[in-house]
């Protein structure tokens, strides 16, 4: 039997099927790689979402603190609450006790007007230190006035 020429051999061989079967089944390895990649991708895509949600929650909490809660807890409100409590306690304490002067309530009204004026100014500039100091002084003057007109030592003189 004559051996075909190299050219003939080459031509015929190149026309033959180019398929070759691997010795082992390669699909399980491919499938594992796809599954592990998908799981990795899920984990990777899960964290940005979680971080985003956490960031939104923190931002929301901060906004709530600043916009909703903060005005109730600002310095002016704190000062007002503290002095109002003190003032009401004194007024209750001295309720049955006669005052030394009859015009002390008019003086108190003036101080309360001053208090309202300072509070109005603080609405525009809530953390203004000078205004807050002024408000505290006005409150203190109110307390001093109430105390002075009701103190026993003044009544004994």
């Amino acid at each position: 039997m004559n051996k075909p020429s190299f050219e003939q051999f080459l031509k015929e061989s190149l026309e033959q099927t180019k398929e070759v079967s691997p010795k082992r089944d390669l699909w399980p390895g491919i499938e594992r790689a796809l599954v592990s990649h998908n799981e990795h991708a899920k984990k990777v895509s899960y964290w940005p979402k979680l971080t985003g949600v956490a960031a939104c929650m923190v931002a929301g909490l901060l906004a709530w603190q600043v916009v909703i809660k903060q005005p109730q807890q600002n310095t002016m409100v704190d000062i007002s609450a503290f002095f109002e409590q003190q003032k009401q306690s004194l007024l209750v304490q001295y309720e049955a006790q006669p005052a030394l002067t009859s015009d002390w309530q008019a003086q108190l009204k003036e101080l309360e007007s001053a208090e309202q004026a300072v509070k109005s100014a603080l609405q525009n500039d809530p953390e203004n230190a000078a205004l807050l100091k002024m408000l505290a002084q006005v409150y203190q003057q109110q307390l001093d006035l109430i105390n002075k007109v009701h103190e026993p030592r003044w009544q004994q003189i």
């Binding site: 079967s21 691997p22 390669l26």
Partner: peptide, 17 residues
């Protein structure tokens, strides 16, 4: 992924060759 497995079966031998 099921279609991908079919695609693999169709081309596996050519790619390996």
């Amino acid at each position: 992924q099921r279609a991908f497995e079919q695609l693999y079966k169709k081309y596996e031998k050519r790619v390996y060759g």
